[in-house]
Amino acid sequence: MRQTTDTILMVRPSQFRKNEDTAVNNFFQTGEDTANNTQELALAEFNTMAQLLESKDVQVIVVEDSGQFDTPDSIFPNNVISFHGTKAVLYPMYAENRRLERNLNVLGALQKAGFSYDQIIDYSIYEDQHQYLESTGVLILDRINATVYCSLSPRANPILVQRFCEDLHYQAVVFEAFQQVDGDSLPIYHTNVMMSLGTTFAVICIDSITDEAQRKVVQQALKDSGREIITISEEQMNHFCGNILELRTKTDGDPLIVMSEQAYKHFTDEQKKKLATHGELVQTPLYTIEKYGGGSARCMIAEIFHT
């Protein structure tokens, strides 16, 4: 099993804005969205990123958000669906308006592009029980070693983490990670803002795991996986240094490490030097999406594993 893919899904937004339904526990959404051109700016950032990845020899399948539904966060498809060979998984979403993203018919678009799925696992029924699991936003998959890392939060229910592991044959490393918000220590809403796994590296804000025993378990699991561990500070995490993703080129399989321009600027020179030994660093400006959406480059990509 490969850790990375050369084919991705992205959703072009039609009504991007700060989603007040998610801002209640996504503290990476900053500032009030009073601009009248937020969608226009986000669309430009989206198009730039999609074109950049295509120029780097990544197959980008773009689904158009028609605007028929109130889906301000549709630009972040990795929270709603994940792909595992011929299996696709749909997830229960914390915010009610994010559940509308399932109406965008992503699977239909993929079928037109030549990808079919013989099993669809649908966890969305757990929304009725107020249990949530927001896909690879909360589940950091080590596909090589069949291990999933998950920081528990209102968007990551431990029962559903176990259900995912049983259905997809993973083992779980579960912990709690926190960030400082106005002097309070609060759960980080998505694991993928505090850690990222590549084929041979791991980026993690280890200090966000305040329980020493949990921190040691995570560190040991990463060490056992053989990856180089690159630690980032909470300040770097707040600038989306943890929200990065390794992809690979379609022709030669060369590794690419995709991140926002903001994240790139906040990595130290030494950290960038280390990362560059694992793949080409690809950066793109996502300031509007990051400020109002509270997510970055990784959140915008749903990886398609088709073999």
Rank of each mutant, 00 (worst) to 15 (best):
E20S: 01
P255A: 12
R2F: 03
R17A: 07
L133S: 00
F27M: 02
Q29I: 15
E246T: 13
D211C: 11
V58Q: 05
E176H: 07
P77V: 09
A146H: 15
S124N: 12
T136S: 04
L286N: 02
D167H: 13
I257R: 12
I209F: 10
R12F: 11
G183R: 05
H130W: 08
L52G: 06
N105D: 12
D254M: 10
T251Q: 14
T268S: 15
T34N: 08
R298E: 00
T251P: 10
D142R: 07
Q271L: 13
Y149C: 02
P13R: 13
V161I: 15
D122R: 00
I206T: 07
T231S: 15
I8M: 02
A276C: 03
R99G: 03
K56S: 09
Q68W: 02
G85S: 09
E166S: 05
Q214Y: 07
P92V: 09
I209S: 10
A50M: 05
F69D: 12
V89M: 07
R12C: 12
D207G: 04
H278F: 06
F27P: 05
R163G: 00
V148P: 04
E101M: 03
N78E: 11
K216E: 15
E134R: 00
L197I: 12
K291M: 04
T268I: 08
I140V: 15
A177D: 05
Y292D: 10
S185C: 06
I204K: 03
M1T: 13
V60A: 08
Y132V: 09
T22P: 04
N192D: 10
F83W: 00
M237I: 11
H169M: 02
D118F: 06
R143E: 12
V161F: 05
A23D: 12
P255T: 13
V173P: 04
Q131W: 06
I232E: 06
P13N: 12
C299R: 06
H169L: 02
P13Y: 01
K56V: 09
A44C: 09
G242N: 14
S74W: 12
A297M: 12
T251M: 11
S135C: 05
S66M: 11
P158Q: 13
K56I: 09
L41E: 15
L160A: 07
A202F: 06
R143M: 09
R227F: 08
T288E: 10
K250A: 14
A172Y: 14
T231K: 14
L281D: 12
I230F: 14
D207T: 13
V161P: 07
Y91E: 00
V217W: 04
E235D: 15
D57L: 09
I121R: 00
E134P: 01
Q162L: 02
T288C: 13
S208M: 04
I257G: 09
D73F: 00
T307L: 08
L43N: 10
F240C: 05
I75R: 06
Y123S: 00
Q131T: 10
R98A: 06
R155I: 09
E101A: 02
N78Y: 10
L256P: 01
P72T: 05
M93Y: 01
M93D: 02
L53P: 05
A50V: 07
Y170M: 00
F201I: 07
